[in-house]
């Protein structure tokens, strides 16, 4: 506005910013930014600094305390021993099933809808159901006894397996639906093209579909792993919270709400986040080795 002459005015600063995509519309981002800073970043860094200010000892003493105590340190291993196999099983089982169901068939919508049920029910209700169903007098053991597969009830609750099953029941449908959507994002003509070039279904799967699906599988694994890693209610309710299923989130919770030691609880939370991010980083690094561009379908 300042230049009135027909000469060649210098670029206005607003124009120079606009050229890089900065203008008034970006104000729309502000509420979300305030939100994420106030409710996520600030608490996170608050927790981080709090974890270096233990109630007694030097800045690292809470971390030292965690790693020197075998009972505490062991929670990392316990969590990984539950979460990694559960996440892996969920993803691996989902692939062949989704591969078979990726076409359109009658009742597909019903199957997917039924699969959403356990996800929406959540871990608390699943735990309650598992206690009834897998318990020593539950239907599952009754069927095993009635068919003489076992002589006495199998212990499936209040131990590792109870938690594992609860993770499969909520995690498998989640993984399946994700894998299914990634699969339907791959253009089916690619496989048909491979078929015209003489590839049988095995080769079509291993050389065309699987490589294109790998990035999706990695993402699915990450999301399933996050769910399994933060296992909390089922570890308490169907697991053995004092022993073999004392997961790390339980340790953090106990520090915060039973011992009221917030610095220590924050330290455990940070360790938990760190361990999880390390695993995710490894998976994502592996993912980047695959082709991740468009797969031609309507994904």
């Amino acid at each position: 506005m300042s230049d009135a002459g027909p000469g060649r005015p210098l670029a206005h600063w607003q124009h120079r910013l606009a050229e890089r995509g900065v203008d008034r519309q970006l104000w729309l981002l502000v509420p979300a930014l305030i939100f994420v800073v106030a409710l996520f970043l600030y608490p996170f860094f608050y927790g981080l600094t709090l974890s270096f200010q233990p109630t007694n000892g030097g800045p690292f003493s809470d971390y030292a305390r965690f790693f020197s105590d075998a009972y505490e340190r062991g929670t990392i291993w316990i969590t990984l021993r539950i979460a990694l196999p559960a996440a892996l099983l969920n993803v691996l089982a989902a692939v062949p099933i989704a591969y078979r169901m990726r076409g359109r068939f009658r009742g597909k919508r019903l199957v997917t809808t039924l699969l959403v049920v356990p996800i929406t029910l959540g871990t608390v209700l699943t735990a309650q159901g598992l206690l009834n169903f897998l318990g020593p007098t539950g239907w599952f053991n009754r069927i095993l006894l009635a068919t003489s597969l076992v002589d006495e009830p199998v212990r499936l609750t209040h131990n590792y397996w109870g938690v594992f099953f609860s993770l499969v029941i909520t995690g498998f449908p989640f993984a399946f639906l994700l894998v299914l959507s990634y699969l339907s994002g791959i253009d089916p003509t690619l496989e048909r093209a491979a078929a015209t070039l003489g590839a049988d279904w095995r080769r079509r799967f291993t050389q065309i579909t699987l490589p294109l699906l790998m990035p999706g599988l990695a993402t699915t694994f990450c999301l399933t792993f996050v769910l399994a890693f933060s296992v909390f209610p089922s570890a308490v309710l169907v697991g053995n919270p004092a022993g073999e299923t004392r997961v790390i989130s339980l340790a953090a919770y106990q520090a915060a709400y039973e011992q009221y030691d917030y610095p220590y609880a924050s330290a455990i939370a940070m360790i938990m986040g760190f361990v999880e991010l390390v695993i995710i980083a490894v998976v994502l690094a592996a993912r980047s080795r695959f082709y991740t561009g468009s797969t031609g379908g309507k994904g």
Binding site: H15, E19, D23
Partner: peptide
């Protein structure tokens, strides 16, 4: 699209 330079009259 904003201009980087010049004017329109």
């Amino acid at each position: 699209l904003p201009l980087t330079q010049g004017s329109i009259w």
